[in-house]
Amino acid sequence: MKKRGRGMACMWYPIGFTVAANPSAATVKVNTDGTATLLTGTVETGQGALTVLAQIAAETLGLATDDVHVVSGDTDVTPMDTGAIASRTTYVTGNAIVRAAEKARDILFEAAAPLLNVKPEQLEVRDRRIQVLGFPARSVAIDKVVHHSETVLGNPAIGSASYNPPTVDMDPETGQGKPFNTYVYATQIADVEVDDETGEVEILKIVAVHDCGTPINPMLVEGQIQGGISMGVGFALQEEILFEEGRQINPNLTNYIMPTSLDMPDIEVGLVDNYDPTGPFGAKGAGEPTAVPTAACIMNAIYDAVGVRITALPATAERVLTAINEKRAAEQADAA
């Protein structure tokens, strides 16, 4: 018979390396037509990081995402970056880009200030224009300013900067310290059905609500969450590298069982409204944490459905059925 159950799990997860320095650098060049080029040493590994980084550069310069072209991943060309690891790209590389773009922007403010008869610190960027703070009417198009700065004043709008999250060493005896500059939080809730005669677990739905600070690109954050959950589902129910005397016995995708499209539940994603003042425009990160609470919430849902606590992952159908049988036997023993 199929038994329904629900379970939740929450989690916290840090952004960046544990104490160790993990800087990123960036260079932003504003072109004379008001578009910009961003140089970053990180690599696109699928998350859409380069689009997020373009959005951060664009935001700092008052441009649209499409105005920024990103050059990445070439040690001959791009500045250093600790890389696509530790959910750090949006936060650490993003902060470097904000600082680099601000330097380029400051060059433009210097050039625009005399044109608008104000001091540079009284200027802001918005909608591809440089304007007097709060006065869109007193503004000049950014391409005109770049052109003026570069070809008349001889001051091209290029900025380079780096960022490394501040941390405090951990005490070797007690671990006390500040290993990370910021953390994200999340809750996932699973709705499952357990077949108590086969042990098969079907996940009907997962609701996932994550904090990533400001979502720079909500669509890409959703993609991270959905993908993280699929990894979590595999970790929870199916995936395991098996060994026989140190030899892997299932090193192939026939016998290493990862989720297919038929094995994934419907996923409902929610993002909490949060802003981290230390991140680029309030952003933190979204990559790894999405895979963290999934297995836990599924195990709690199994417990809710059939009353067995799975203590060793993955919760294969066989393990679940064995646990159900043990529970039945114990109950019968108690009754006797």
Binding site: Q238, T254, D263
Partner: peptide, 10 residues
């Protein structure tokens, strides 16, 4: 058929 997953199962 009972397999270890729903899609592409042995």
């Amino acid at each position: 058929k009972f397999g270890l997953r729903k899609g592409q199962a042995l």
